[in-house]
Amino acid sequence: MSVGTAAQSAAGPAGALDAERGAAGAGGLPPGFGVDVAGAALALARRFAHGGTLWCFAPAWPAHAHHVAVEFVHPVVVGTRALPAVAVSAEAGVAGLRTLCRAGDALVVVASSEEPAARRALARAPAWGLTTIWIGAGPRPAPGAADHVLWWEGEVPSQAAHTGRFVLSYHLLWELTHVCFEHPGLLEEPQVCSGPACVTCGDEGRLVEVLRLGEGGAVLVRAATGLEWADASLVEGVSPGSLVLVHAGSVLTVLAEGSGE
């Protein structure tokens, strides 16, 4: 399963490059990273194939967001197609992303697992209908924080941001995504569900974002499937931007803001 090498620097982040100079030819990817970036690339290719746009967000290191976007928009390899990718500035942030993105788009975030704006964006992405890829270093995010997590676990984020780790990560993502376009049969979304699920028996709970408050406890919410009204009289503290869980037309709980989980 894992084809990663164990050639991780034992000298720790500070001496990572020093150690590497003595280990020419080492693979240098964390264990499992190759498999992870492969899965992320296929998912991203599927979004592009269905007309999706890639949003790039790196609140602490905006240059990385711009690099990802220009990589896809203006490819360096002749014969590869230009793809819709846009950097969202740190100033525009979560609010800008909310306004710009559409269901079926993808979002790549370059950030540490502690970055509050990244966590807020990624927590909302399911309600916005986005496929998400999180590139980062240091302590791993909580399981399931993004659809695909490409992580340099043993490194200090502020260093990995400048030693080329992240650049390599999204270069690989770009290169592999274009390989996927040579396999059109695999760009269809996988059909895993056979038949409608029932609201009650499935104990359904859909993650949605509150858009605005209406009258009589009603709230207009944004779900991956579109806008709808729900009743919020059972919960306290709902405001525009709240992430909530809806079951059978009622808001049952308000999620902690941007928990990232």
Binding site: V3, G4, T5, G27, L29, F33, G34, V35, V37, A38, A41, L42, H171, L172, E175, L176, V179, C180
Partner: peptide, 8 residues
């Protein structure tokens, strides 16, 4: 793809 990523 995974093999290719490792090689790159």
């Amino acid at each position: 793809l995974a093999r290719s990523a490792e090689a790159k």
